[in-house]
Amino acid sequence: MMKLFHLAAAICLAGAAASATAADPNLGRNLAATCANCHGTNGKAIPGAGMDALAGMEKEKLLQKLKDFKSGAKPATIMHQISKGYTDEQLDLIAAYYAAQK
């Protein structure tokens, strides 16, 4: 039992070390939720309220739009300023999350 206990502790430590350095398994979900105030919970915007829905948008298409907002190629009232606040890796996770929403 003592050995088992040590092994248990070792597994715990390994798990803890991994979670201290590895990204949160729900990082994409959490990041995407920061957009939901305008684009709706899980990207399902209220129809007719004038905000674009993001749910189910193809990942590459979504990413391209965000890149174009960042570069200024796509004209915007606000998205050029918001998109610059996220790293490319974060936008990738966000786009993957919204693409997976039905």
Binding site: A36, N37, C38, H39, G40, T41, A45, I46, A49, G50, M51, T77, I78
Partner: peptide, 14 residues
């Protein structure tokens, strides 16, 4: 002005 009202509708629903 339209975006502000759209924001309100969406955040209230959120």
């Amino acid at each position: 002005g339209k975006a502000a009202l759209g924001w309100a509708q969406n955040i209230w629903a959120d």
